[in-house]
Design a protein around this nucleic acid. Sequence first.
DNA 1: GTATTATCGTGAAATAAATCACAATGTGAT
DNA 2: ATCACATTGTGATTTATTTCACGATAATAC
Lengths: 210, 210
Amino acid sequence: MKTVSHRTVGRLTLYWRSLRDLAPEAHSYIYSHDLATRARVTAAQVRRDLMVLGYSGTPAHGYDVGKLRQHIEAFLFPSTEQRVALAGVGNIGRALLKFFAGRRPTLRIVASFEKNPEKYDRLVGGSPCYSIEKAESIIRELNITVGIIAVPAEEAQFVANQFVSAGVRGILNFARAPLQVPPDVYVEDIDLAMSMDKVAYFARHWHQPD
Amino acid sequence: MKTVSHRTVGRLTLYWRSLRDLAPEAHSYIYSHDLATRARVTAAQVRRDLMVLGYSGTPAHGYDVGKLRQHIEAFLFPSTEQRVALAGVGNIGRALLKFFAGRRPTLRIVASFEKNPEKYDRLVGGSPCYSIEKAESIIRELNITVGIIAVPAEEAQFVANQFVSAGVRGILNFARAPLQVPPDVYVEDIDLAMSMDKVAYFARHWHQPD
DNA sequence: GTATTATCGTGAAATAAATCACAATGTGAT
DNA sequence: ATCACATTGTGATTTATTTCACGATAATAC
């Protein structure tokens, strides 16, 4: 498979969401500029992104909503259930467990891990929480391929190592610590403090139009 | 002021954090490659980023840790307290309130807003929660310039409009809806579902080395 | 049937960001 | 003093991403 831009993958989820949220009867076809408006990008960007799908619209009607959506789903979503584990059931961790619970049939958090004995060995946010000690064996056993890290910065690298050696291939990292992982493991960082600082900075300094 | 790259601003917070966390006595000087390792970027990237500060290191010792930190702080942080409001005290909103509480002296969440009457008119996560109806007047009154949106997608644009017309200049948006704002208002989107989808996608597909 | 029109797909150009590569610098060894 | 060295700051280059611009296409109007 040809390599697809990072950002394109992100925007495809925006398009998918827009299509999903269309009134079912109102539109059976949609134009690139309409999709673009909904996702707040340009029409050219939409058309460029959709090129990766191998599905074409027609000049007359644009894109068939149902078909386009199916092609995005085929591209973006796994064919079999993809399992996720989360480490660190503090403030953020618990909010994420609740947020992601039942959100997608093909992407499911099936376990969480925690260092603090008062928090593990019970259900948290809809899935069982285990001692972090058991992470490696449980991840293997349940065939988990995606990990979420929501532990303090000091422990993030340790958790990442456990995840990677157990077979996790993608990590969503909320810890305020840049992770060291093998090049074939994908890491997406969400650094809340950094984002906040950026917003505060640009709120004070004039910035270019979008 | 010359316009500074989006990403540079983000990385400066990483460098600042690295400097802050150095053992105070261990290093009074630091080299670009050392900072680079800590922030998991390249040395050239560090030097390029630091150009915006107008502070130079010396070829012999690298950067004076104290001075570099001061310059980053002067660049990145406001001179007077910058006030923040949050809308939507659900799962994510409450976690954010707790997460940001007391984190920085110059950046403080001073109010939250909520539609549901059962949740407002009391303290939530350390700051008072008001009816969303009062947002505009309270934002003006308290001179709030930064807003966090953690409401459902359907209400996000309404809240953004309130924020903007009350004088908010930067928005951290957790809603899964692209916002429409004037070009001089900065928006940073954190789309948890999109990030999760991206991680899941790239966990399944081979990707280039970092 | 032909002209008109709006849209699509995509090569080419523009813009943004990261990396390379090297002259300039200042330090310590001899 | 002089040399060798590691590091800095930055112009030039490369890579990534977005936007432009236009030929091709198919529906509709006449």
